Amino acid sequence: MIAQLKIGSDTLKRFQSLIALLILCTILSFMTDKFFTADNGLNVLRQIAVNICIATGMTLIVLTAGIDLSVGSVLALCGAVTVGLLRNGVEIPAGDLFVGFTLLGAILGGLLCGWLLGWFNGFAITKFNVPPFVATLAMLTIARGFTMLYTKGHPISNLGKEFAFIGSGSFLGIPVPVWIAAIVVLLAVFITQKTKMGRYIYAIGGNEQAAKLSGININRVKITVYSFAGALAALGGIIVTARLDSAQPNAGMSYELDAIAAVVIGGTSLSGGKGSVWGTVMGAVIIGVLNNGLVLLNVSPFWQQVVKGGVILLAVIIDKAGERRD
């Protein structure tokens, strides 16, 4: 009997995100007839694509028992850098040179910027023993300041149809951002489930001291994870900028909240070592559906923040309760 109850409890825990999503969709379908429509479904998919990219990187960090509060600011800075390279290139006065960028070159430049910012987070955390919360909080401010300096506080607009296609185009009837998010998820799943790096990530989050004694290079793994997360935040910034056809200096505000919410709701433990990318995808869908439903119901944006904060708190309480039972 006890064994059967434990099996039932484990099964419920495994599918709790899916059950929560089904309940949420059922409630919203009764409260508004605009929810279950094809257009709204595509709109939700387009909106959650960015959060999936960011939250996937956040998942890898949380699995190592870390956190990254800078993803929203990194998103804004890298989006601005990408369109700045695309529109204005780089001038080198000393050599009287001008370097222009193609669309692909500008995108790679933006991703490299995100990778470097993430690398700096990982370097500060591993080499100077700065707590992840403090290091990434500092980067949140630094990156936002650099965004304001780079854009001079003004949007960079009129970016062209090719660039806009990344954020607002469709392929085979599915929004391009959804395709991009799907590739990111599959890559992250492959890393976590099929590579040594994935095993190292789980080992560090489960017991860092034991992982160190087993010969794992803790610092290298953490720096790689934070760098990867920075690149994914940059990718999210490129998508957002393309969708808006404008690099906004204040883009990405509170995006770290949605990313952390997706990770926690998806079942990844904030203590590290437990969780999955697929769970985070489900968490991002729940957050996206919740945001969409609140908008359709004309709920005040201020109350939306209250609701999301409450959902995060509830998810953490459930996570901690599960850890005590284990």
Rank of each mutant, 00 (worst) to 15 (best):
M1I: 14
I7Q: 07
S9C: 14
T11V: 15
L12C: 15
K13V: 09
F15S: 12
Q16F: 08
Q16H: 10
L22Y: 01
L22C: 10
I23K: 00
L28C: 02
M31L: 07
F35R: 03
T37Q: 12
G41N: 02
L45Q: 01
Q47I: 00
Q47P: 00
N51Q: 11
G66K: 04
L69D: 09
V71F: 08
L75Q: 09
L77S: 03
C78L: 09
V81D: 05
T82F: 03
N88P: 10
A94V: 01
G95K: 01
V99S: 04
F101D: 15
G105C: 04
L112C: 07
W115N: 06
W115C: 05
L116V: 00
L116I: 09
N121H: 02
I125Y: 02
K127P: 03
K127W: 01
F128D: 02
F128H: 02
A138M: 01
I142D: 15
I142K: 11
I142M: 08
F146M: 08
T147Y: 14
Y150D: 09
G160M: 10
K161S: 11
A164E: 15
A164R: 10
F165E: 13
F171H: 06
V178Q: 03
I180P: 09
A181L: 10
V185I: 12
L186D: 15
L187Y: 08
V189H: 14
F190I: 14
G198V: 02
G198T: 06
R199T: 00
A203D: 13
I204A: 08
G205H: 05
N207H: 08
N207I: 07
E208R: 15
Q209H: 11
K212Q: 11
K212F: 05
L213F: 14
G215N: 07
I218D: 07
A229Y: 06
A229D: 12
A229V: 06
A234R: 01
L235F: 15
I239H: 12
A242M: 12
A261W: 07
A262T: 06
A262N: 04
V263C: 13
G266S: 14
T268I: 03
G275I: 06
G275T: 10
S276L: 10
S276I: 04
T280A: 12
V285M: 13
I286D: 03
I287Y: 07
V289E: 07
N291E: 08
P301R: 11
G309M: 02
G309E: 10
A315C: 06
I318L: 12
A321Q: 06
E323T: 01
E323N: 07
R324L: 13
D326T: 09
